[in-house]
Amino acid sequence: MSLPPPALVAAALVLFCASAPSRGETAGLAITEIATGVFVHIGVHEEASPANADGIANIGFIVGNEAVAVIDPGGSAKEGRELRAAIRSRTDRPIRYVILTHVHPDHIFGAAAFRDDHPDFIGHAKLPGALAQRGSYYVERLRDSLGETAQGSEIVALTLLVSTRLDLELGGRRLVVRAHGPAHTDNDLTILDEETRTLWLADLLFVDRIPVIDGSLVGWLKELDELIAIPADRAVPGHGPAAVAWPAAAEPERRYLEAVARDTRAAIKAEIGIANAYRQVANSERGHWLLFDEYHPRNVTASYKELEWE
């Protein structure tokens, strides 16, 4: 793609700064262009805090000849504004779509920053239900973690729901948005940019940071099989580097999920209680993942609850 001339960028910046005075925010959100027109901001491997403004997930945008699609607007309104500024420093094309890949706070709370662009807010057909169930809890938790920095971070109403597949035309490039069965959550979307063969997996792919199981362990392994069959040159994980080789990068995640499934089934069979099971599930994975102790026990509890019905 061709970038707009510098004068336009400057004009856009001036406009942005004039219309959205912000506290010390710059257009300086670090952004990597991983393929032509595909931009990723890498989240930090931390828990949400005022210092990181819940900027812990990989977020970004794809620019076509006519329009821009945001893929995950960020973990807070603050991060959303910074992402918007980063977009406006590169293009003045309209932001027509804001895709929320799933219900988790680190991916969605930046949406409010894009309201004035009047985009379609796109989510999985099951996302509204999940937002209804969890939204208030997530808002409270974000306020607890971020304090004042959480200000303006709100749930936005979705305008376009995806139950199987949705094609988005950005001008000269088409994005294929797919809705998946229960896996990381019960409302996961992935996006394939056909132009650059980039598969944006969001939290269906964790690299380095431990996967979080909040949908279905068995379902996730099943979805992985199908995702691996999608021809793509690179994938964008929800947590990890900006881009990884596909499908090779799926292996550590699959290994972890399979270990959890195998060992949790064994723990249930051995009548080890739900609270203690994690101590002997997938211990071989410790050391392979960041934040292992913070998330692994809950993953095992969730998996235990799922697998004890088998």
Binding site: K126, G129, R134, Y137, D186, D214, G215, E308
Partner: peptide, 23 residues
């Protein structure tokens, strides 16, 4: 902490389909 208002139901479709079933 947070157990009473914590997010419910990881898979809402399954929860509905399985409602009242016992094992």
């Amino acid at each position: 902490s947070g157990g009473c208002s914590a997010p419910a139901s990881k898979d809402q479709a399954l929860a509905l389909q399985r409602l009242g079933k016992m094992k």
